[in-house]
C-alpha cells in the first residue's frame, strides 16, 4: 500500500479560520489515537485574529530524521516521514527542536516523539487525511494538481523553502500567489514580521478567498 502518485496535500495557512475542526479530526486518526498532531497557532492573539494550521511538510531530506541519535525516524518510499519508531525513540527532543517547520511533538510521559504522518492508515489506501476531510475553508486540501488548479485559479503550488543557507523541498505543497515571481518561500521574510509593526496585517491582507467555481 502506498499513497497514489497523483495525490498531493496542499496547505494554505492564510485561509485558516481557526475553527479547530482539523485539530479534533486529527485526534481521531488511528495512527496516533486520541492525540492531535496539528498545531493550530495564533499569529498574535492581541493584534490579529489570524490562525494557522501546521502539519508535517514531509521533507525530501528530513532534518528531524538526520539529527535523531536513535535512527528512529524513517521516510517511506512514497515520501511520508513517519512518527518515531516506538522501540527506538529515546525522547531526546532533537527532532522537535531541529524541524525547520516546528512540527514534531514530544509525548514526555511515553518517552516518544509523535508527529503528523499524513494519516498513513488512510492515505495509503486512497482516502484523504482526517484534517483535509473536515477543513471548511480549504486551508488544508488533499487532492490532485488539476483539482487545486481549478479551485484556486489565482494560486500556484510551492514546495521549496529557504531557511538561511538551507533549502528544503517537501512533499506537501504550500499555495502562493500565481503571479508572484518567488521561486521559493524564505522563512526570513516572515521571521521578524509582526502584525503589530504593520498597518496592514500580512496574513489578513492575504486572506482574499478564492471561491470554488460552481459548475
Amino acid at each position: 500500500m502506498a499513497i497514489p502518485e497523483n495525490k498531493y496535500f496542499f496547505i494554505d495557512p492564510h485561509r485558516c479560520i481557526g475553527c479547530q475542526s482539523c485539530v479534533q479530526a486529527c485526534s481521531e486518526c488511528d495512527t496516533h489515537k486520541g492525540k492531535s498532531m496539528i498545531h493550530l497557532e495564533t499569529v498574535d492573539r492581541l493584534q490579529s485574529p489570524q490562525t494557522l494550521p501546521v502539519i508535517c511538510m514531509h521533507c525530501d531530506s528530513p532534518t528531524c530524521a538526520e539529527v535523531c541519535p536513535a535512527d528512529a525516524i524513517k521516510r517511506t518510499e512514497d515520501g511520508v516521514v513517519q512518527s518515531a519508531r516506538k522501540p527506538r525513540c529515546i525522547a531526546c527532543n532533537n527532532c522537535v527542536l531541529a524541524c525547520p517547520f516546528g512540527v514534531p511533538k514530544m509525548e514526555t510521559s511515553m518517552d516518544l516523539m509523535m508527529k503528523c504522518d499524513m494519516c498513513y492508515d488512510r492515505t495509503s489506501i486512497g482516502k484523504k487525511p482526517m484534517c483535509a476531510t473536515v477543513c471548511p475553508s480549504g486551508a488544508l486540501h488533499y487532492g490532485t494538481l488539476s483539482e487545486i488548479e481549478e479551485l484556486r485559479p489565482r494560486s500556484r503550488t510551492n514546495n521549496e523553502f529557504r531557511f538561511g543557507g538551507q533549502t528544503i523541498r517537501t512533499k506537501v505543497q504550500m499555495m502562493v500567489p500565481r503571479q508572484s515571481p518567488a521561486t521559493h518561500l524564505d522563512v526570513a521574510d516572515g521571521m521578524f514580521e509582526s502584525p503589530a509593526d504593520e498597518a496592514d496585517d500580512a496574513m489578513l491582507s492575504g486572506a482574499v478567498f478564492e471561491l470554488p467555481t460552481v459548475q
Binding site: 497557532e41 516546528g102 521574510d189 500580512a202 492575504g206
Partner: peptide
Amino acid sequence: PRCRRISMALSQGKLW
C-alpha cells in the same frame, strides 16, 4: 519551534 511555525506562515502571507 512555535516561532518557526508562525514565521513560515507569515512569509507566505507576505507574498500575498
